[in-house]
Each structure stands twice: as C-alpha cells, then as structure tokens.
C-alpha cells in the first residue's frame, strides 16, 4: 500500500516576517526556509505507519521552484522511498496544487494521501480538502490521531468543540494537525543517504493539469502595530490600570 505525503518549502517558522516597503510581498530572499511544520508531522506519521507495516511505500511530493529539492531531500531523510518534484516557478494556488497532487495520486495508484493541515506561509488550509473533493475521496482533516486497520482509518480530529472521531475507508486524504506526533530528529547518515536518491521531476503539462484561476494579490502590508503598553510594578498598580480603562 502506497502513501503520498505533500511537503512544502516555506519560510522557517522562527523567522520574523518582514513586509517589503513597496507592498509587493514579504521578504523571502536570503531568509531561512524549511519544510512546512505540518508536513514534517505528515511525513513522520507516514514513516510510523510504514514502521508498523501498515503501508509499504512513501512517496514525497512537492510543487515549486528548484529549491524545493531541499525539501524533498529532507523527506527522503525522514524515510520517503520516492520523491516527485512538480516544477513550477512563482505563486501556486491551492487548487492548482490539489489538481497536480490528484494526478500524481492516480498515476501512482496510492491508497493514502497525508498533507499538512495548512502551509504556514499562505495559511490557506485548503489543499488536502480540495484534493479529496477532486478525487471524490473521504477526508479526515486536522488529525490528532490516526490508526489504520486493513482498509479502514480511524482518525481523531481536533475540532473547535473538542475531539471528533471519524472512520474512513481507504483510499482517503488525511491532513495532519500539530499533536499527531512529534517528528524525529534526522540523523546525519540518513541525510547523507537521501542525497543519493534520484528525484523524479515533472511539470503540470506532464501531468495533464491546467492551473486554476488565480486569486491575485494586489498588495501586502504589515499588520497594524499595537502601541507600546505600560509596565506596572505591583498587583495594585495593575488593578488601578485596569480600572482606568474601565475593565475592573
């Protein structure tokens, strides 16, 4: 049984985002990039499922420019058995990514697709659900726990009201939430070994996919800044400050 995991290259979550003064976007040149944290979790889950014998193959897929190859190398170091690079420069709409992943899913005859619940750059939280819709597959988003028995996955989902449990038949799409697992530290020998594994490169045209109509970004601005507050020294001062604001 094959699983596909999508891995996106994003600005590292520790980086303080700077908006370009001309409003044309955020500064990404010369800024540290990493695998989207939710995709690390998705990768880890796939590796654990393989270690448990639930799946036999893990295909990592990414879509983006030449540098995305680094992200695939990380996925291979995690334990992906194959890596596919969908080459595409510039902005990628979640619907376009979903169409491309759907084509790869069909071509590979996979049984499970694990995506991150959201990419921390666009914060869209769309791709997995769109993919499931395009393939008419069941979806279990925001997974906090996954167990697979035969052809059935039981997924505990992190929803606003608490924890929801769904049972879905494979093939299916699952999106990983933060508490699904804690990704392992990659070991140097695994990182070295990953460098030698060939990466398969394809284009949207190869996959027979057309890009979706784009939501155009007109301008990017920094969020309104909060004005600097006051420091108080005692609880009494705090209570007084709250009273002054009509809050106590």
């Amino acid at each position: 049984m094959k699983a596909i995991v999508s891995v996106k290259r994003v600005v590292d979550y520790n980086v303080r985002i700077q908006v370009k003064p001309d409003g044309s976007g955020v500064v990404t040149d010369g800024v540290k990039h990493s695998m989207n944290p939710f995709d690390e979790i998705a990768m880890e889950e796939a590796v654990r499922l393989k270690e448990k014998g639930k799946i036999t193959e893990i295909i990592a897929v990414t879509m983006g420019g030449a540098k995305n190859e680094e992200t695939l190398r990380t996925a291979l170091a995690f334990g992906a058995t194959k890596a596919i690079h969908i080459k595409e420069e510039g902005e990628i709409q979640p619907l376009t990514a979903a169409r491309a992943f759907a084509a790869v899913f069909k071509k590979e005859g996979a049984s499970l697709f694990i995506a991150g619940k959201q990419a921390i750059d666009d914060d869209a939280n769309q791709t997995g659900q769109m993919l499931a819709a395009l393939l008419d597959l069941p979806q279990a988003t925001f997974a906090g726990k996954v167990s697979i028995e035969g052809n059935v996955a039981t997924v505990v989902r992190e929803v606003d009201a608490g924890l929801e449990t769904l049972e879905i038949d494979l093939p299916a799409v699952i999106t990983a939430d933060l508490r699904l697992n804690e990704p392992r530290y990659l070991k140097l020998p695994d990182i070295m070994k990953a460098k030698r594994i060939p990466i398969e490169a394809v284009t949207l045209a190869d996959l027979g996919v057309t890009a979706a109509a784009a939501v155009k970004v007109i301008k990017t601005t920094p969020p309104p800044s909060r004005s600097k507050g006051v420091m108080v020294k005692t609880v009494d001062e705090l209570v007084a400050a709250l009273k002054a604001k009509g809050l106590a």
Binding site: A98, D123, N125, Q126, G128, L131, A133, T141, F142, V215
Partner: peptide
C-alpha cells in the same frame, strides 16, 4: 472560519472549480 468551515469550504470550492479566500 471555524474548523467546520475550514473542513467543508475547500471541498465546495474544488467542486465548483474556483479558488477560495481563507480568513
């Protein structure tokens, strides 16, 4: 923009073949 909306909306957008604006 709740876990409910985030779960269902993209599935609707994909079926309609249109992009979605989140949040």
């Amino acid at each position: 923009g709740t876990t409910f909306g985030k779960d269902v909306a993209p599935r609707v957008a994909a079926k309609l073949g249109v992009p979605q604006v989140s949040d």
